[in-house]
């Protein structure tokens, strides 16, 4: 389990990371999401112990990474960005070296290396010089290295960068398998990556954590919240009724399906979508309109991400804690 508290890192006057706090629980895959240069790598490097923080504290399984660095690093399997490896070593030799370095006892070392190679399926490449490996295989060696000492926490910096779609799928599957025993924190700037592998996401922008929560919670983030109403009958009247409902920002007539009209209502910034939806349903029913379907509009994570990272972060509270309840979904019988 990783606990990060009020982490700040400055390079001179430039603040790369500003007051970032989060936790990654056991058996949880957390995606660390942000555009390039947002401070992802810096944060991961601080957790892994490669960089020191200007302020704040990181603990891994309760061990402080600054006070007890060596003991903390025993518990972390870290895969740096771009996976630096020694080109003159063979894959097996390299993993053997890393296992020894990470304190795997001699008696168990061979077995640990075999297991790590099995996990990432590079057994047939054990005798290949690392310098001759393709990008995908280098990535796997990096993952095997992170796994070899069976640490309780995995920190992976852009684990699928530069891989082809097949390799990406394999690495994602691998991460899911690995997560059954480890806490995993992985960084990426690709949204679909998080959707495919993570339970939870942290969104960082310009060094500040701008949102965190489960994927569903992030998708139905209030500020981008909208509800779809499928109404049979008089579409124009339905729009009118909806527009008169309290906190609706605007209503769009999206399309028609047979005799039904699909309307999308975007809620005002401060509205509570659950309550507003209930009210809207009451009014529509009261107005004798036949309601076929009511559902929250799933915004893609891309939309959320763009929304979260394009604005200036708010001064008072940089992070938006998103509750699962915001992801409520209502079905109304026609």
């Amino acid at each position: 389990m990783i606990e990060v508290k009020h982490l700040t890192k400055s390079y001179g006057s430039v603040q790369a990371v500003h007051d970032v706090s989060f936790t990654v629980g056991d058996k949880e895959v957390v995606g660390f999401l942000g555009p390039n240069g947002a401070g992802k790598t810096t944060t991961l490097r601080i957790i892994a112990g490669f960089l020191g923080a200007t302020r704040g504290r990181v603990t891994v399984d309760g061990i402080d990474t600054v006070r007890d660095p060596v003991r903390a690093r025993y518990r972390i399997g870290y895969m740096p960005e771009n996976v630096p490896l020694y080109p003159e070593m063979r894959v097996g030799e390299y993993l053997q070296f890393r296992a020894e370095l990470k304190g795997v006892p001699r008696a168990r070392r061979k077995q640990a290396v075999e297991r790590a190679m099995d996990d990432v399926r590079i057994h047939d490449h054990a005798q290949v010089l690392i310098g001759n490996l393709s990008k995908g295989y280098r990535q796997r060696v990096g993952l095997a290295d992170a796994l070899v000492a069976r640490p309780s926490v995995l920190v992976l910096d852009e684990p699928t960068a530069g891989l082809d779609p097949n390799q990406i799928r394999e690495v994602r599957e691998l991460i899911r398998t690995v997560a059954e025993q480890h806490a995993v924190l992985l960084s990426t700037h690709i949204m679909s990556e998080v959707e495919a592998t993570c339970d939870r996401a942290l969104v960082i922008d310009r060094g500040r954590l701008v949102a965190q929560g489960t994927l569903d919670a992030l998708r139905t983030l209030r500020r981008s919240g909208a509800t779809r109403f499928v109404v049979r009958g008089d579409g124009a009247r339905a729009v009118e009724v909806l527009k008169n409902t309290g906190e609706i920002h605007d209503v769009r007539d999206v399309r028609r399906i047979a005799d039904a009209v699909v309307l999308e209502a975007r809620w005002a910034a401060m509205a509570d979508p659950t309550r507003e939806t209930e009210q809207a349903v009451h009014r529509l029913v009261a107005a004798d309109l036949k309601l076929q379907e009511v559902s929250p509009v799933k915004t893609s994570l891309e939309d959320v991400f763009a929304l979260l990272t394009e604005e200036e972060p708010r001064e008072s509270d940089p992070s938006v804690e998103v509750e699962d309840s915001a992801a409520s979904r209502e079905e109304v019988e026609p």
Partner: peptide
């Protein structure tokens, strides 16, 4: 230069 210092310094070594 090669960046391997990162994996070295993040291993449990003094």
């Amino acid at each position: 230069r090669a960046g391997t210092i990162e994996s070295l310094l993040t291993a449990p070594v003094s």
